[in-house]
Nucleic acid binder design. Structure first.
Length: 199
DNA sequence: TGCCAGGCCCTCTTTAGGGCCTT
């Protein structure tokens, strides 16, 4: 499979439009089913992290106080990702923070995003939950450490992306599918999947 | 403590409502 950048944000909340900002970003570069490179950094959001988010992620105000500012980390991450296509779990969430922060810096943010959650809903409807951790358990993906930390989740999503590619290749009898084909698949109603690959 | 937003998907739908998923 082609090289992609799988990313995961930890943030102060759900909406950059409401003032929420990233506290941590991890990126794994995945190629042919393997993680070939990694980027990770905490960042200082310059606002308090809600208590329930700290309970969820383990990331505290003290941890990010000593971290570089968001803009510095995002610029470095953008260089690391370059022109690679991007993958994330529930990509709509990560994409809005990626675009919002890069636009603040005046940097381009036009990378296409593929979503492992939308793909998993189509490919694994028998899974009761399509949360990242539940999918990793159901599909017996390799263990990745503490959930809800950026690198663990980026690695987990990378393994899920590789598994999805392998399953699409075997289920539909196609060569290892690329990012563009899987983006087309994630936007195709389940009942039309066979037609998608026959095209 | 649990909410915030927003896109997707399913159904008791389609001129809508509610659950899932991300932090």
């Amino acid at each position: 499979m082609e090289r992609v950048a799988v990313l995961d944000f930890e943030t102060t909340g759900l909406s950059p439009q409401q003032g929420d900002r990233p506290t941590e970003l991890a990126v794994t570069l995945v190629e042919d089913g393997r993680i070939v490179d990694r980027f990770q950094s905490l960042m200082n959001p310059q606002r308090r992290i809600p208590a329930f988010v700290t309970r969820l992620t383990g990331i505290t105000d003290a941890m990010v106080a000593a971290a570089p500012p968001v803009g510095e980390v995002m610029a470095e991450a953008a260089r690391f990702v370059g022109t690679l296509p991007v993958v994330a779990h529930n990509a709509a969430f990560d994409r809005k923070f990626w675009v919002h922060e890069l636009q603040r810096l005046g940097l381009p943010a036009s990378s296409p995003f593929a979503c492992t959650m939308l793909l998993a809903r189509r490919l694994y409807p028998e899974c009761g939950s399509h949360r990242l951790g539940a999918l990793a358990q159901a599909l017996q993906l390799p263990p990745c450490g503490r959930a809800h930390r950026a690198m663990a989740d980026a690695e987990m999503a990378g393994h899920l992306w590789s598994r999805i590619g392998a399953d699409v290749a075997s289920r539909f009898g196609v060569a290892p599918p690329g990012h563009a084909l899987l983006r087309r698949l994630q936007a195709t109603p389940r009942a039309q999947l066979q037609r998608c690959f026959a095209a």
